[in-house]
C-alpha cells in the first residue's frame, strides 16, 4: 500500500526559548518547540523539559515522613539541601523562601539575601527563587535576592497581577527571568504576559506558571489550560508562547493522598508507594500537556521522570 501521509499540522508559531543561568553559573535552555509535546512527526522539540528540585530556606514542618527520610538533615540548611539536590540529578533548583511568610518566621530581605547566597555558592546549577506567595513579602525578598544574584540570570517569582511590576522591574535591572503565575486560566495567563511585556520585560525573560492542580485536585484544569496555551502559541500567539513551569511536587505532596499515614483506607494501598506514584503521575501527565520545567520533591520521582524523558528523546 502507499505510505501513509503523516497528518502534520502546519503550526506557524513556536515556543520561546528561555535561558536560565549565566555569569559562571551553568545554563539551561528550555522551550523552542515547534510541535506539541513529544509529537515528533511534525516538528522539533530542541530542548527536553528540565527537572527542578524544590529547596526551602527553612526546615519544612509539615512534610511527609517519606520526604523527610529521603532528604535527612539536608532539610535543615538550604546550602546542604541544594548540594544534595544537585547530587540527586536536578537540572536546576527551585528555592522557596518559605521563612519570609508572615505566618512562618516572617523574615525579610536580610535573611533572603543570606539564604540566596548560601544556595548560590553551594551549587553552580541554574536557580529559580520564589517568595512565600504573599505579594508584598515577595517583593521585599525577591528584590533583595535579585541584587545578590545579579548577572546570574536566575528566575524570580511569583509575579501575580498584584505585584508583577516590582518583580518585572528588578528582573530588568538585574537580568533575571520572571515567573508569571496565574490561577488556571488561559486569558489571565496571556494578560499577565502582556502586562509584563508592557512594563518593558522581554517576552524571552518570562516563564509561565499556570498554577498546578495535583492529581485528583484540579489536575484536569491545569492540563487543559496548558494544552490550550501550547496550541495558541503554536498557532502564532506570541503572548502565550512562553515556556511553562509546573510545581507538581509541591501540589501533590500537600494532598492527603500523599500526607496521610493514619486511618488510610485500604484501597489506597501502601503509603509510600502511593505518595510517590501520586507525584509521578501528576508530573508525567503535565509533561504530556506541555510542561517545560517540572518542580519535584522526591528524589525517586526525579529518577523516574528523568528515565521517562531519557526514553522520550
Amino acid at each position: 500500500m502507499a505510505p501513509l501521509e503523516a497528518p502534520v499540522e502546519k503550526w506557524t508559531g513556536k515556543i520561546r526559548e528561555l535561558k536560565l543561568g549565566s555569569g559562571g553559573r551553568k545554563t539551561i535552555t528550555v522551550g523552542g518547540g515547534t510541535t506539541l509535546p513529544f509529537v515528533k512527526f511534525e516538528g522539533a522539540q530542541p530542548h527536553r523539559p528540565a527537572i527542578a528540585i524544590e529547596v526551602q530556606d527553612k526546615e519544612p514542618t509539615d512534610w511527609s515522613e517519606f520526604l523527610v527520610s529521603a532528604w535527612g538533615d539536608a532539610l535543615k540548611n538550604p546550602g546542604a539541601w541544594a548540594k544534595k539536590a544537585a547530587e540527586f540529578g536536578a537540572d536546576l533548583l527551585y528555592i522557596r523562601l518559605a521563612s519570609a511568610h508572615p505566618e512562618a518566621s516572617n523574615t525579610g530581605a536580610a535573611q533572603a539575601k543570606k539564604s540566596a547566597s548560601e544556595v548560590l555558592s553551594a551549587v553552580d546549577l541554574p536557580v529559580i527563587f520564589v517568595g512565600p506567595d504573599v505579594a508584598e513579602k515577595d517583593n521585599e525578598v525577591l528584590v533583595a535576592v535579585s541584587d545578590v544574584a545579579k548577572g546570574q540570570r536566575v528566575g524570580l517569582g511569583n509575579c501575580v497581577e498584584k505585584n508583577y511590576k516590582t518583580i518585572a522591574a528588578t528582573c530588568m535591572a538585574d537580568g533575571h527571568v520572571a515567573i508569571a503565575k496565574t490561577p488556571i486560566e488561559i486569558n489571565l495567563a496571556k494578560q499577565l504576559n502582556i502586562l509584563l511585556s508592557d512594563v518593558g520585560l522581554s517576552p524571552d525573560s518570562i516563564l509561565m506558571d499556570p498554577t498546578t492542580g495535583a492529581l485528583g485536585y484540579g489536575l484536569e484544569y491545569t492540563y487543559s489550560v496548558m494544552e490550550r496555551l501550547r496550541l495558541a502559541a503554536l498557532m502564532g500567539d506570541g503572548m502565550t508562547s512562553m515556556p511553562m513551569i509546573c510545581t507538581a511536587g509541591e501540589e501533590s505532596w500537600r494532598q492527603k493522598e500523599s500526607k496521610a499515614t493514619l486511618d488510610v483506607p485500604q484501597a489506597w494501598g501502601d503509603n509510600q508507594e502511593r505518595s510517590l506514584i501520586w507525584e509521578n503521575v501528576t508530573a508525567i501527565s503535565l509533561l504530556a500537556a506541555g510542561a517545560d520545567i517540572l518542580v519535584l520533591r522526591h528524589p525517586k520521582t526525579v529518577v523516574t521522570v528523568k528515565a521517562a524523558l531519557d526514553k522520550s528523546f
Binding site: K165, T166, A168, A169, M172, A173, V199
Partner: peptide, 12 residues
C-alpha cells in the same frame, strides 16, 4: 537609581 527605578516601574 536602581531602588527608585524599581518603584517607578512598579508604579509606587
Amino acid at each position: 537609581m536602581r531602588g527608585w527605578g524599581i518603584q517607578m516601574v512598579d508604579g509606587r
